[in-house]
Design a protein around this nucleic acid. Sequence first.
DNA 1: TAAACACCTAGCCAAATGGCTAGGTAGGGG
DNA 2: CCCCTACCTAGCCATTTGGCTAGGTGTTTA
Lengths: 228, 228
Amino acid sequence: MDKEGRSDVPLGRRSPMATTRVMVADRNVITRVGIRSILERNSGMAVVAEATSYEAVIDGVDEHGPDVLIIDLDLGDDTTRGLKLCEEISDRYPNTKILVLANTLSEMIVVEALRRGANGYMCKDEVKADELGKGVKAVQDGDTVLGRGVGSLVARGLGSTRGSTEHLTDRELDVIRAVAKGLSNKQIAHEIFVSESTVKFHLQNASKKLNAHRRAEIVHRATAAGLL
Amino acid sequence: MDKEGRSDVPLGRRSPMATTRVMVADRNVITRVGIRSILERNSGMAVVAEATSYEAVIDGVDEHGPDVLIIDLDLGDDTTRGLKLCEEISDRYPNTKILVLANTLSEMIVVEALRRGANGYMCKDEVKADELGKGVKAVQDGDTVLGRGVGSLVARGLGSTRGSTEHLTDRELDVIRAVAKGLSNKQIAHEIFVSESTVKFHLQNASKKLNAHRRAEIVHRATAAGLL
DNA sequence: TAAACACCTAGCCAAATGGCTAGGTAGGGG
DNA sequence: CCCCTACCTAGCCATTTGGCTAGGTGTTTA
C-alpha cells in the first residue's frame, strides 16, 4: 500500500505557471466529469488526478501533489474513513489544501472535517457553478471556505450554548448500526460481545450527544449526519 | 418562465438528423454539467433543457418535447412527487422516454418508478460514463434499461415469493416521519389527531411492508428507500 | 354490488426501552 | 501523578413497544 519515497519532490507551487492543479476524489463519474468541466471552463485550473477510493486518494496526492484536493468524504461505506483521510492528508501533505464537497449537510461532519484539516466545505446540491471555482481558489489561497448553507449551519451551531458537536465513539456507532438493523439490546449485546447493560450505556451516551431520546430518533439523526 | 405554445411542433423524431434531444432534471449543477459533458462528448446527443424543480420539469418537457428525460426523482424534499411526476410525464407526453438517474438504490422505488412509466433506472454512483449514453439510446429505442446493480436488485426481489414491494400509504409515512423525530405513539396520535391505537395500526402495517420489526428499523429502511 | 383499499379504534400481554444511579478498567496527555 | 476519555457492568422502575385479535367507516374499482 505504502508507495515509499516520492517525498523528495517538493510539493505544491512547483510550477511557475499560475494554473491551479486540482485532484478530484469522488466515486461518481458524473460528478467527476462535472467538476472537471466547470473548473476547466474558464479559470486557470486543471484536474490532474482523480480517485474513487480512499486508497487511491493517498496515492494520487502522493504522486501528483495537487494544490487542491476536492473530496467527497463518502468514498465507500464508512464516512468516518473520509474524516480520517482529511487528517492524514493535511498532516502528511500540508501543501495540498482540502475542499470537502459533500452530498449531505450535517453540522457534526462539517465541524469534524474542519477540525481534522479540511480547508473548506461545500454541499453539492447547494453550490452554484461559479462558486466551485471561487471556492477552490480561496482554499488554495489559505482561506477557509464554507459554501452556501454550510456557513449559516455552523454559525447556528456555535450560537447555541451547548457544544452539540461531540462526535460519536466507534462503539457507539457499532451499537447504533445494530439498532438500525432492528436488533434488541439483548441481540446487540450478543453480537458485539458485551453485556446488555453496556449496550444501554452506549445508547444513552449516543442519545445525549445526538440530542435524541428514542432509538428511532438516534438512527434518524445518525443517518442524517451521514454516520451510517 | 412559461414560454407558451410550441406544442404545435410534432414531438419526437421531428428532426431529420439523428441527434437525440435530452432533457436533464437534477437539482445539482455539477451533475447536470457532468451529464451534459458525457452525453455530448461523442454520441449524437444534445441536452436541450435542464430543470431543477418539479414544476420546471413539466414546463421543460412541454416546451422542448425531448426524446429522453433524465431525471433524479429527488428534486425537492419529497421523493414521492418524483414518482407522481413520472406518471404524469409518461401519461401526457408519451413520446418522451424517462430515464431515472437516482442517488440511492431501493427496490421499492425502482419498481414503483417503472410501474409509473419510467423506461429506465440507473444509479449515479454505479453507472460508468459510457453506460449513460447507451442507456439513453436504449430507452429512446423503447427498451427498458436497468443499470448496474439495479437489474440484479429487482431480479432478487422478483425471485422472492413475497411481493415485498408494496408501497407505504400517506398515513403510514406520516407516522414514520413522526417516529423518526423520536415521538412516542401517544405523541404521534396527538400530533395527527388520531388515537394511539391507530398509530400502532399504521406502524404494524408499515412494519410488514418494510419487513421490519422495530420502529428504529422502520425508520432506517424508509430512509434507505428514500421515502423520508 | 362486491371486493379492495385506506383509514380508524379497542384491548390484551409479554417484552423492550429510557432514564437514572453507582460502580469498575485501561490508556493518553498535561 | 491526576484527569479525561473510551469502555464495560449492575440494578431499579415507569413507560413504551411489538404483536395479536376483532371490530368499524368511506371511497374506489372491477
